[in-house]
Design a protein around this nucleic acid. Structure first.
Lengths: 208, 208
DNA sequence: CATCGCTATATCGAATCGATATAATGATCC
DNA sequence: GGATCATTATATCGATTCGATATAGCGATG
């Protein structure tokens, strides 16, 4: 799951671990507060499998757009700091940013992970897939939305039967959750409608 | 987290692992689909720490009280069945229901886990605590609700600043999530109001 | 210039997940 | 009556993820 998220972000631009975490928090809005204990192992994983490559990025804080790969310093003090750090850590290069870039194999893997229907069906996975839905073909997008909708409807039905005797607090929690699912479904409905409209528009408006 | 959930359910009645999973799904409505790979290790954990005791429950559903530990048989056919099973599974006794019962230490632990403010602040933990809020003192309930509310408000504020350029799909996900948080807050508001009303009623209506 | 807070990488143990194995029991069908 | 299938039930495995913690550079603030 994290692998897909990371690859999706790297499709956009090169990033280092810390930035990936921030973007994930912003992209998935409050939903995904991923731990560094997940991110760094995931990056190592992806690097070993050849889906990404790491470039040792020195320099100061996030300046996306200009900073592509390792800029040859620019400031004397910065260069000194690098040398000083090198002295401390031994053989390894400066303990600094490690900027990751996606490879062709990584793009391939991302496409597979994104499209794979047999994957996890939890809310996080779905939100993540939808956030990257621009990378999907229109019919795959529709399938994603409709599969999710069917799942939620099924859950609502299941929850209607078999409701035991709950005290007010537990009942309130359950009810709030059920309302949330209903809300999700109508959200999906609007998304599905707009997808269909797009498809229809593409059909009636041929040839750019 | 699971430990608290299990202990909370066992406060109500004795249960075995499979039932615990069902109840968890029903109590936390669709939110908590806990895996057996979590439940059984958790039960073993709790048993080893003395928070629960396991009674080998043979026969049909929940009949707590009569069934104790490994009975020295009584029926020949039962003994044969045990031996047959032993032949299959090795040294262990009959593969049957294991009904768990909470101990005094377990009740103590549950109270601590439930009240502990320094614990995880994710949605699941909160929902779980609220579902068991009847075990909390009124002011602890209020504190729980208000702490959660403050957290969500803070997140809303944070998300208002620093919103990057998102494509329509990602934006829709973020917006839906933000709406969900706002909805959660007004839900909390109603719960808080009703808690305060309860407290006020208790004050103006003294002496049972 | 000391200290604080933010950026940044990294690792550890524990919790959790998802898949799978195993088995008893009950229901359905021919 | 017996074959077959779904459900109930416990258990374990490897992989993922989490939460805490360590380390360190850097800019700002007083």
């Amino acid at each position: 799951m994290l692998d897909m998220a990371i690859l999706g972000l790297l499709e956009e631009r090169d990033l280092h671990g810390y930035e990936i975490r921030r973007q994930l928090r912003d992209h998935l809005g409050l939903l995904a507060n991923v731990s560094f204990g997940s991110i760094y192992p995931a990056l190592t994983r992806l690097e070993k499998s050849g889906a990404v490559v790491a470039t040792e990025g020195a320099g100061s804080t996030s300046d996306p757009g200009t900073t592509a790969a390792a800029p040859p310093t620019g400031s004397l003090s910065g260069e000194l700091a690098v040398l000083r750090a090198r002295r401390h850590t031994g053989t390894r290069s400066r303990r600094g940013k490690k900027v990751y870039r996606i490879t062709d194999a990584g793009r391939q893997l991302f496409a597979e992970l994104l499209a794979d229907g047999s994957a996890a069906d939890d809310a996080r996975s779905f939100s993540l897939r939808l956030a990257f839905a621009r990378h999907l073909a229109p019919q795959a997008r529709l399938a994603l939305l409709e599969r999710r909708r069917a799942l939620l409807v099924q859950r609502l039905v299941d929850s209607e039967s078999a409701r035991p005797d709950l005290d007010p607090y537990a009942r309130s929690v359950v009810q709030h959750t059920v309302d949330g699912v209903a809300r999700d479904i109508s959200w999906l409905d609007s998304l599905i409608a707009s997808e269909r409209a797009d498809v229809a528009r593409a059909l009636t408006e041929p040839v750019g």
